[in-house]
């Protein structure tokens, strides 16, 4: 079997802060095949963004990182900054959460797309501009030939996110990371953007990591789902398995918070009780144990390992739930 597109091996990322070392990503491993979509789900602060920046090797100076990230057979952790720059754009790209702040306010839309094309594809400025208009059209931006000369503040949030997507797909990367691409947008626009991402991914045969804290987003759109808690993957499976055969109590709590179509209106979402763990002094055993209603002494003293229960369904729990319990 050929090597998967992306292999992340025991990635750890911690930040040195005044209060101590924040272990934001704490031993994450997974693989992603070409053209497939992996959903990464978790509460705010669970380390999703840090994981995506670790994959892109875009970490702030106070970050300590270890582990291995291989993209198409190359170990990114061993590459020079210069070599990495050549990969960012043509091989791997990212769409950020907040389209309001992720575009440069003083540069035109065209300049922001065009520079990727001139930098990586060696296009002339003129060709880059023409291509930018095409890209804007392909992400469904109305009047692309007008918009290309405008500045970000002249566009709505949804339109800006389309621009950000156009930038990300400009060089047809093998891997696209979408870090909560719709969280900052109106509900009505969210589905459109997600559909756009799915369409582009299919057309260009990109692999995608779709980061979200919303299980509902993952449901119809990902091949596999990884659930993160306190910097670790606590459960991972094909989307179908994960929804049908939830093993980890935290996953089940996340699932319980999705609004369903058949819910009575105004049903209160079941928020997960308790606070996310302290990443500087994590709990001794299972990180979820302070909030888990099944926790026992073993849970509180020994961390459970992430184990494969067959068919690629992995979870880390001493007392996995059965199907009935999840019901």
């Amino acid at each position: 079997m050929s090597e998967p597109l992306l292999t992340v091996e025991n990635q750890r990322t911690a930040f040195a802060t005044g209060r101590g070392l924040v272990r934001a990503v704490d031993g994450v491993s997974f693989t992603l095949e070409r053209g497939r979509t992996l959903g990464v789900v978790g509460e705010s602060g669970s380390g999703k963004s840090v994981l995506s920046r670790s994959i892109m090797r875009l970490l702030p100076p106070n970050a300590r990182s270890s582990g291995e990230v291989r993209l198409g057979g190359r170990d990114l952790t061993a590459m020079s900054e210069k070599a990495l720059r050549a990969l960012r754009g043509p091989e791997i790209s990212i769409v950020f959460q907040d389209p309001m702040t992720s575009l440069n306010p003083v540069m035109t839309i065209g300049a922001q797309i065009g520079e990727v094309l001139t930098r990586h594809l060696g296009m002339s400025r003129k060709a880059a501009k023409a291509r930018s208009v095409e890209l804007l059209a392909s992400v469904g931006l109305p009047q692309p030939d007008v918009r290309v000369d405008q500045h970000p503040h002249q566009l709505s949030g949804g339109m800006r996110q389309r621009v950000a997507i156009a930038i990300a797909i400009a060089c047809e990367p093998a891997l696209l990371i979408a870090d909560e691409p719709t969280t900052a947008l109106d509900v009505t626009v969210q589905a459109e953007i997600l559909d756009l991402l799915a369409r582009q991914q299919a057309e260009r045969n990109m692999a995608m990591i779709l980061i979200t804290h919303d299980m509902g987003v993952v449901a119809g759109r990902c091949d596999d789902v990884a659930v993160m808690y306190a910097g670790r993957i606590v459960e991972q499976a094909s989307t179908e398995d994960l929804f049908r055969d939830t093993r980890m109590p935290y996953t089940s709590a996340l699932l319980a918070s999705i609004p369903r179509l058949d819910d009575p209106p105004h049903r209160k979402l079941e928020a997960i009780a308790g606070r996310p763990p302290d990443l500087i002094h994590p709990p001794a055993g299972c990180a979820f144990s302070p909030r888990c209603r099944y926790a026992d002494d073993l849970c509180r003293s020994q961390p459970p390992a992430l184990e494969d229960a067959g068919r690629g369904h992995r979870f880390a729990c001493w007392r996995p739930m059965t199907m009935e319990a999840a019901e």
Partner: peptide, 22 residues
Amino acid sequence: QENYIALARAKGMSDARILLVH
């Protein structure tokens, strides 16, 4: 520290270009 600078880095722009242009 702005997001759009992070995005410029994610686009593979060189440090010099980020400083001068972005």
